[in-house]
Amino acid sequence: MKKTRTADTTIKPTALLGIRAVSAGRLVLFLVAVPLLLVLSLLLGSSGAGLPDMQSPVGKAVLNLRLNRLVMGVMVGGALSVSGVVFQAILRNPLAEPYVLGVSGGAGLGAALAILFGAVAFVPLSLPVSAFVSAVLTLFLVYGIASRGSGGAPSVYSLILSGVIVSAICSSLIMFLVSTASVEGLHNVIWWMLGNLQPVPLEQRTVSGMLISAGFLMSWMLSSRFNALTLGRDMAHYQGMNADLVILGGLLSATLMAATAVSIGGMIGFVGLIVPHVTRAIFGPDHRWLIPLSAAAGGTFLVLCDALARTMLAPIEMPVGVITALAGGPFFLLILQRRMKSAWIA
């Protein structure tokens, strides 16, 4: 197909430049696989494989439960993955992930406080709300420290550095709280920190869905700016965008998604770091495609992991956070070592 063309050929430039945006074959394969895998996960559960008996109320309830968990999985997995994509773009760093700027540390601290002081028992939604609020507060703290250090808009390095430091402080505080906690509180905190997709109340799911959608749409809208931003903030500025505003908007939407995901699913690791890398390795780094595709990939991945978590030791259910790295790790390593070059240059 490759042939040299000169300026006066009549081939449409759109076709010319569009081709390499995303490989069409891989895209079709992906779009077929996603719904198939989602349906597959509906057939798996601790009550046994296959579609439950739809005539019986028990069967209906089981399917309903599985559907709810599928929705949870798609929301949490998609949110974490897109959040990872955005953090990696803004910080221009392959090690960036949804928790890098202290989102996990802050959320964990908020959740631990809510659980250990017993608010969870009395105030509905107190755990997710306190996790969410403290995650967002932590971001502002980190951003504030980083800005002060560099006089004005923060540099990428000061952001990462202050994020890591604040996270470490939060972790220490959590450790302190945990070490002084009662046995029951301890179990609750640990269980929450391992991450799981047990359905939360409908109102909370609706609100979370709206927050995640808002974060996703905002990220997608900024996707072409993220492309320019990977060339550096100065170059992005020269290209005619308000780079600082794009960075701030990206950080906010990514944190919104990550904090919401944490508030309903706990701290599920690995998804937000690795799904962006694998999606980028397969489809290239153009964020206009990368953001929706990694949302779908991350959602599907987490739903599948959850299906495995339900069935592997049935009827015992494992936290999904245990499965993500165990099952996904080797598979993703395989893809990455073959295709890393089409994702990052290093």
């Binding site: 430049l17 290209q239 290239g284 780094p285 240059i345």
Partner: peptide, 15 residues
């Protein structure tokens, strides 16, 4: 100008 990610030339110019 450097990009850490593997953009093609066409993708860069599109910016």
């Amino acid at each position: 100008v450097e990009s850490p990610m593997a953009y093609t030339v066409a993708q860069i110019v599109m910016n």
